[in-house]
């Protein structure tokens, strides 16, 4: 069985070590994926994973590391089950947004479990570690003088907290449709020490026209677009919020089934086209998928990231 070799880049990887020991003991089937995630860039993996774990432990306590890993394993299992069913059916389950709202987003216990599971995928899935690295290196580092950052669908809030860690002058406003998201994201921000720079409101992403136009210096929106029936509206909302010339970061899932994935994107170009049709210029993209797939899979579940800039007129 593969082992994780610490690169000793951080003074401590205390919580990551506890997480790994728990996976090894209770969920050995999940170890291979974690080894892959670390191998992308061991030092950066440890930095990201330990940071996320420190925040999570500050919210839930050290004794809850096992429970968080259980949530991650349940979430990953559910994703894998959806993917196998998708392979067989050839299309996503025909869910509506209303179905997801009723059965998940507004169901506290289900949603809390889901959000802690998603939180850990951000660094425990190898292709998601790559996306966080892309977010940091190619997006956060090219932003300057960001006063207001808007996060659409923050979920657990980890992405926003990681952004604030890199942008010390920035204030964040986040909008999510799930009460659990508002609660957990607020707790994560408190744990990260950014409570006075972040606030969250319960709002539908597609009704953000009520927020002042051209008010954001930066917008981030991760893994929401595939949860919508009308994804083009989300691009229009991002355009509405951003100041001209400013940049947004968006991620979405392609041919990756999940209990609450509604819109089935098949090609990277579909997301690029949606951005371009809604006044956004695509500066850079990244698309990654898991290293291990089902035998004879028709679909490679990908996660794609786009760095976009609000155009000032039709062409630029």
């Amino acid at each position: 069985m593969a082992t994780l070799t610490p690169s000793r880049s951080l003074p401590t990887t205390k919580y990551l070590d506890q997480l790994e020991a728990y996976v090894r003991d209770r969920h050995p089937r999940s170890l291979a994926g974690i080894v892959e995630a670390r191998l992308n860039d061991p030092a950066r993996f440890e930095e990201i994973a330990e940071t996320f774990m420190e925040w999570a432990v500050a919210v839930r306590g050290e004794a809850a590391i096992g429970e968080m890993v259980d949530s991650f394993v349940r979430f990953t299992t559910s994703v894998n089950m959806s993917q196998v069913r998708y392979e067989r059916a050839g299309h996503y389950e025909n869910k509506t947004f209303e179905d997801c709202l009723q059965s998940l987003y507004t169901e506290k216990d289900e949603m809390d479990d889901y959000l802690w599971g998603v939180y850990l995928t951000n660094f425990l899935w190898a292709h998601h570690t790559e996306i966080i690295l892309f977010f940091t290196e190619r997006y956060l580092k090219r932003l300057d003088d960001v006063q207001t950052l808007i996060e659409i669908a923050p979920g657990h809030g980890g992405w926003g907290a990681y952004a604030l860690k890199h942008l010390p002058q920035t204030r964040l406003v986040g909008y999510d449709i799930a009460p659990s998201s508002i609660e957990i994201a607020t707790q994560i921000m408190n744990a990260a020490g950014f409570a006075n720079r972040a606030r969250y409101e319960l709002k539908d992403a597609l009704n953000l026209e009520v927020v002042e136009a051209n008010s954001a210096d930066a917008v981030i929106c991760n893994f929401l677009i595939e949860h919508l029936e009308r994804p083009e509206k989300l691009m229009a909302v991002i355009n509405h919020l951003l100041k001209p010339g400013q940049k947004a970061f968006l991620t979405g899932a392609l041919t990756a089934a999940q209990i609450d994935h509604i819109y089935e994107f098949r090609y990277e170009s579909e997301l690029v086209k949606l951005a371009e049709d809604n006044g956004l210029r695509v500066l850079e993209t990244f698309s990654g998928g898991p290293r291990r797939t089902l035998p004879n899979a028709k679909f490679l579940p990908r996660s794609m990231a786009l760095i976009m800039q609000k155009r000032q007129n039709d062409i630029y």
Binding site: H27, R29, S30, G33, T77, M81, V84, R292, L294, P295
Partner: peptide, 12 residues
């Protein structure tokens, strides 16, 4: 090779 993905495949 009994990883989380193959496990789900097995269960299906």
């Amino acid at each position: 090779t009994w990883d989380s993905l193959n496990h789900v495949n097995l269960m299906m």
